[in-house]
Write a protein that binds this DNA or RNA. Structure first.
Lengths: 138, 138
DNA sequence: GAGACCGTAACTTTTTTTGTGACGGAATGG
DNA sequence: CCATTCCGTCACAAAAAAAGTTACGGTCTC
């Protein structure tokens, strides 16, 4: 799985530390060690999912749209969509092989159950909890 | 998650259809639509985990080391190691940021719980079941 | 209306993954 | 015992995916 979920959680934790203020993508990028555009791209998805809001212009920036305790890690993963999931392989199997013809659908069933399990596990974590844990550790 | 698990399951299903015989990597590669070396690399890991056996020389090839019903998808994932899991991001955060310093450890905790959930879900599936499902579908 | 920020597209660079070619070694089985 | 078959593995090429960068238009604030 790609590290995008990690990045998203990191950003959201940062936003959670200053829930009253708008934070710029430049600040976030600087703090995390990446590029502002990367942050904007990422947050654009989270905004679509209603997790954050953004505002252009001076004094603008990003902000959580609800308390960090009410944002589950599951919802963050969901906001990122398929990019954070088990994936099919996409080789083209020999057309006469019955296994090759059916295996992808079979895998879909397997992965669906795994996916549900992941969601259930991540539902237990909120951004607030992740943040708290991160601060404890450091 | 990368598609390697999918590839592995596909290969194992193929082996499961002919449990009595050794199957060559060339045959497998041809059936799946990839290169024999890719298959060998992959199966080398599964062999380390004791899931398959291999034999060089004429008449050689690959074979499941136990009945397909006794190979769980979980064990396959485990054999592939960390490559099939949630991943950290590896940007270097600003050194004075307390969030950046602790976030990775916090994520480790989150991901550990997700990982356990995945394992539990995949434990319910065996290669035999996946194969059966694939054949049903096709 | 000047400046601060987002929004987004296009492009480059980097990283990761996959695919290829090559060749030694081992064992089979004539 | 020798030719053949097949794995084991390295080194490299190619392709795909991801991340980073530049650029610029739009919008709102002050």
């Amino acid at each position: 799985m790609n590290p995008r979920l990690s990045l998203a959680l990191h950003v959201l934790c940062l936003l959670a530390t200053q829930p009253q203020q708008r934070v710029t993508s430049e600040y976030l990028a600087n703090s995390i060690g990446t590029n502002p555009v990367v942050i904007r791209r990422l947050l654009a998805r989270l905004r679509q999912a209603g997790l954050v809001t953004s505002k252009g212009a001076a004094g603008g920036g990003w902000q959580l749209s609800r308390p960090a305790a009410e944002i589950s890690v599951r919802s963050v993963r969901a906001a990122l969509g398929e990019e954070v999931a088990l994936r099919r392989h996409k080789n083209q199997p020999h057309p006469q092989c019955p296994v090759g013809r059916g295996v992808n659908q079979a895998l879909d069933a397997v992965y669906a159950s795994a996916d549900a399990a992941i969601d259930a596990a991540l539902e237990h974590w909120s951004i607030a909890q992740v943040l708290e844990l991160a601060l404890q550790v450091s």
